[in-house]
Design a protein around this nucleic acid. Sequence first.
RNA 1: GUCCCAGUAGCUCAGCCGGACAGAGCAACGGACUUCUAAUCCGUGGGUCGGGGGUUCGAAUCCCUCCUGGGACGCCA
Length: 558
Amino acid sequence: MKGIVQEIRERLAAALESAVNQAAAKGLLPVTALPPFTVEVPREKEHGDFAANLAMLLARAARSAPRRIAEVLVNCLDLTGIPVEKVEVAGPGFINFYLHPRWVLPELPRIVQAGDDYGRADVGGGMRVQVEFVSANPTGLLHMGNARGAALGDSIAAILEFAGYRVTREYYINDAGNQIENFARSLEARYLQLLGRPAEVPEEGYHGEDLIDTARNFVALYGDRYLEAPAEERRRVLAEYALKEKLAAIRRALEDFGVRFDVWFSEQSLHDSGEVEETIAILRERGYLYEHEGALWFRATAFGAEKDEVLVRKNGVPTYFAADIAYHRNKFRRGFERIINIWGADHHGHVARMKGAVAALGYDPGALEIVIMQLVRLYRGGELVRMSKRTGRFVTLEELVEEVGRDAARYFFVMRSADSHLDFDLDLAKAQSNENPVYYIQYAHARICSILRQNNAPLPPPEAVDLGPLETEAELALARRLADFPEEVVACARDLAPHRLARYLHEVAGLFHSFYNSHRVLTADRRLTEARLLLAGATRVVLKNGLRLLGLSAPERM
RNA sequence: GUCCCAGUAGCUCAGCCGGACAGAGCAACGGACUUCUAAUCCGUGGGUCGGGGGUUCGAAUCCCUCCUGGGACGCCA
């Protein structure tokens, strides 16, 4: 479904295009290729409802002044059927279109009729996309960076879905390799300590106190059964138990955060299935591997990376990178046409070599898109909250949700662009006051619901409502912005940028609050009431749909 | 040293696939609740878009260079 804004934009573009042809046919303009011009909405209201930069772009080829070309084009314009009241040439050569003030109103019944589907687009054309995010090590709890990734990834996935993609949300479980060994040794130390044996968590291990709890749970189940067992077996059993427990906790925390995954993909399964070996064999065949100092290297520099990378260590154990390449091959083989990874800034060095590996395997590196998000800094009482990975002391996702609430947390994570460092102010997120932007949007939604509840007279179907009474600036400005929603969704999907949607919704809420404070919706005039109820109802649809895409609730009462 | 991100109002940030006089929220100041939710609204003040060059009819936006902050440069993940 196309919004009215896009419709008019396209019709104006078409009219301009035929004006160029007309002018050329009449000899008023040399015949040239049509430049890629835009029909945009001017920032200044005085410049009309839409403006085209076509004349300026034609100036060079036509060897004529832009304003002169604009005049010629305006004279050749046929705007039949487009609600344009006035056309002007202005500034350096813009062609400005002034529409009938109430041109956007027909969109209102369409919004209400479409309901939950308003804004749904098909730019994705059913293309299969995989969004992989969070993928935190299952050796601990989720921290702020994981939380940002969760909010961002889930929102991007939802927006892409709404824009017509078939989306799979996936979590890659790093349940293999060195860190699992460290994990097991750390657990073993805690286990032994609990049973009164001297032991110490290794330097490189996991020092978080949560592992003491995990070990305690293990002891409750198995007691000292593994005290005298061979260390290898003891560690294996401990790690197996702890991974299960940690993963369940991670899953629960994410669900409480409103994030669900379609697939939980195990790294270990790539080793077990032989895919890692297979992938290495393919790279070897293609000539991208070489041996050096006993290790097997991938020639990442052949693809523009800064340096080559080890795939198999001297000790014969494949690296994380080797598994990750196998994982991406697996993604392509599953038929995903776009693969989107949400990574923290600390992984950006991995981007070039990963794309290189994809290319080396014969897949299109352009199909792999990496969204790099900058790190999160937490503030409380105006002070930076120090995090320490080594001691395992940090604020977890669960604690965050408990402290500030799910909606506030998610809003704060998506309100900034991914490549901006995020200063997360815990006090602000927690505040139930006007300082907190979260409630502004939700409050508008709740207010509308309250009005709708209080209207007890039956309403005509949306298309039968007389739009005549809507004429004030506040009413028209609100309706105009609502009609931008479909294009806004497409832009957010294109840029993988939920923060854009957050800003848009904030603006819509603002326009509604402003309207609300200067207009009564429920009045003695039934015709007026019905028109304003339609406007309010349309606002509700847009807010609700937008909030949903950001993973936020749309409360009916506050 | 090399690479990535950022530098825009007092603070936190949009705008960056070039467009016409640079925006929002908060903070500051002054107003609005007998009327559908004041978690709201209305108004006021506030900026060398980090500095310097360049490209262009036009640059916060593109290119070069320098400065500042954060991150990455492991046979960790």
